[in-house]
Nucleic acid binder design. Structure first.
Length: 502
RNA sequence: GGUCCUUUGGCCGAGUGGCUAGGCAAAGCUCUGCAAAAGCUUCUACAGCGGUUCGAAUCCGCUAGGGACCUCCA
């Protein structure tokens, strides 16, 4: 089975064939660092981290580019717009780059919490003003952009005569061009009246005098338009044609549609072979987003400090929660759903740890052939499911099929020789590969405290002695007090006692 | 208004026309001095109506609800 990816551009699953054999170029739209990341942002980064990890596991050499949008017309969260541009505000508050640095750092921190691998290149928009200006000049020289009052706009109407503008997002070009005739759509957008057509989009915006983020350009001082940075940086680092472009579904239009148009004019070829779009995380069925005022910031999620949260959630719980649904489905958030994921992950991870500790007897033959073959079947499906457009929920379901078997083997309810040594070893290897390396999950417990370990050994030794002499008052006291402190102990079937932080 | 998507058991969530996904919760049982954990068992749902088909959660139509995009938005 070979990897198939759902390509938004053709709305169907396609066999994945990279442009250059063995190599993959992947571009993912990164964060706009004018504010703190929220749960909704976590989804694309975790989704494409998974894609990156899986492609790597399939021995592709992947160049993963994810940008930082740190330029443009944006405001810091929670501040008045006019504040931002007033001179006094400039002195009192942060430098634009200071603000951008703050949220970039916070974003990187969150990605680390989620165990997302850093991209190969993380270019910033402000670091590529030169490339963006160059690209805009190129588009003008080719006759697909025009300058008005220091701003430059892309000529969508002209582009649409020879290209399929709107194909990616399913837009009908005539409707876009007619948009100015319809009251509902025409909004008080800045500079709308200077465009030749409302469907045209900005490549470069002239900066009003009070605007603090500004760069010199052939058209005067200003800042780049909203889509050109991705075209410029993707072209620079991945070439005129690359394999995968990822991002949220809400970026389909106009962002990605415009990206295609810009790059196509400059490079004489469509830039991307496979467009991948993750769906949204919702709350009560409604998209989590700034506009809806229903966001849960990642810092709030990890601390539990939000009215909608019954408790704090570990980043791995969130990661697992996201992997439990398919990336193209909406995922409805609730505190209860996350709690369910937390318990599920703990159960699965416990089984994983138990599995990895199991000794493999060399050359053991399966005594239960049926069980042995079932396990082999489940394991072989891991790749099949992943190759089918990254069906992580199905892989997880198969893992849960094996969890009771692993636990039963540990407790002696299933004989340890029921499955062959080959199968046991394979199961160990696949769990490590998929759970840790591809899903990027990590141990959620925190038992690595060096002083606590010998102390616990001592306590458990005392408790064991108390139990041996039927002094249950003492043994229960130890257990109950530890439970109250957040340390859970379990008497195992083999007479030993395990412990862990709750 | 346009374009598109969606509606699965108490909750979350997979589902490629035929064979109980899975998780969480709940109930019963087993193992434990008691717990916890674990194991076993139970809970067979696909918005409504109609159609196609030997057979539909899955395809088609209509109705109803929800949502996304059309504007910065993951």
């Amino acid at each position: 089975m070979a990897l198939h990816i759902y390509n938004s551009y053709v709305r169907t699953k396609e066999l994945f064939e990279p442009h250059t054999e063995g190599h993959v170029g992947m571009y993912v739209c990164g964060p706009t660092v004018s504010g703190e990341s929220h749960l909704g942002h976590a989804r694309p980064y975790i989704t494409f981290d998974l894609v990156y990890r899986y492609l790597t596991a399939k021995n592709y050499k992947v160049r993963y580019v994810r940008n930082i949008t740190d330029a443009g017309h944006f405001e810091e969260e929670g501040r008045e717009a006019e504040d931002k541009v007033s001179k006094k505000a400039q002195i009192e508050k942060m430098e634009p780059m200071e603000l951008v640095q703050k949220y970039t750092n916070l974003f990187h921190w969150a990605m680390k919490q989620f165990n997302c691998i850093e991209p190969s290149i993380e270019p910033t928009a402000t670091g590529h003003i030169v490339e963006q200006i160059g690209m805009i000049e190129d588009i003008i020289s080719k006759g697909y952009a025009y300058e008005v009052n220091g701003s430059v706009y892309f000529d969508v109407k002209k582009y649409a005569t020879t290209h399929d503008y709107g194909k990616l997002s399913g837009r009908v070009i005539d409707e876009l061009l007619d948009a100015n005739n319809r009251a509902e759509v025409s909004r008080a957008l800045d500079g709308q009246q200077e465009k030749r057509d409302t469907a045209d989009f900005a490549l470069w915006k002239a900066a009003p005098p009070e605007h603090i983020m500004r760069w010199k350009s052939p058209w005067g001082e200003g800042f780049p338009g909203w889509h050109i940075e991705c075209s410029a940086m993707a072209t620079k680092y991945l070439g005129a044609q690359f394999d995968i472009h990822g991002g949220g579904m809400d970026l389909l239009f106009p962002h990605h549609e415009s990206e295609i148009a810009q790059s196509t004019i400059c490079n004489h070829t469509a830039p991307v072979k496979y467009w991948m779009h993750n769906n949204m995380i919702t709350i009560n069925g409604r998209k989590m987003g700034k506009s809806y005022n229903n966001v849960i910031k990642l810092t709030e999620l990890f601390s539990g400090n939000h009215p909608l949260l019954a408790q704090a959630f570990h980043p791995m719980t969130v990661r697992f929660f996201i992997l439990q649904s398919h990336y193209r489905s909406t995922l409805d958030f609730s505190s209860e759903a996350l709690t369910a994921s937390e318990k599920a992950l703990k159960r699965l991870w416990d089984a994983h740890v138990i599995l990895q500790k199991m000794p493999v007897t060399p050359d053991a033959v399966a005594q239960d052939v049926e069980l042995d073959s079932k396990i082999n079947h489940w394991l072989s499906e891991f790749e099949v499911f992943m190759d089918d457009d990254f069906s992580t929920p199905k892989v997880i379901a198969n893992m849960f099929e094996m969890a009771p078997i692993i636990n039963a083997m540990k407790d002696g309810l299933i004989a340890s020789n029921a499955i062959s040594s080959y199968t046991l070893q394979l199961m160990k290897d696949k769990f490590v590969l998929f759970l840790e390396q591809i899903f990027g999950l990590q141990d959620i417990s925190n038992n690595s405290n060096s002083i606590l370990t010998p102390v616990m050994e001592l306590l458990l030794e005392i408790r064991k002695e108390a139990k041996a002499s039927k002094d249950f008052a003492t043994s229960d006291k130890i257990r109950n007090q530890l439970t109250a402190m957040g340390i859970v102990i379990k008497d195992e079937k083999d007479g030993n006692t395990s412990w862990g932080l709750a």
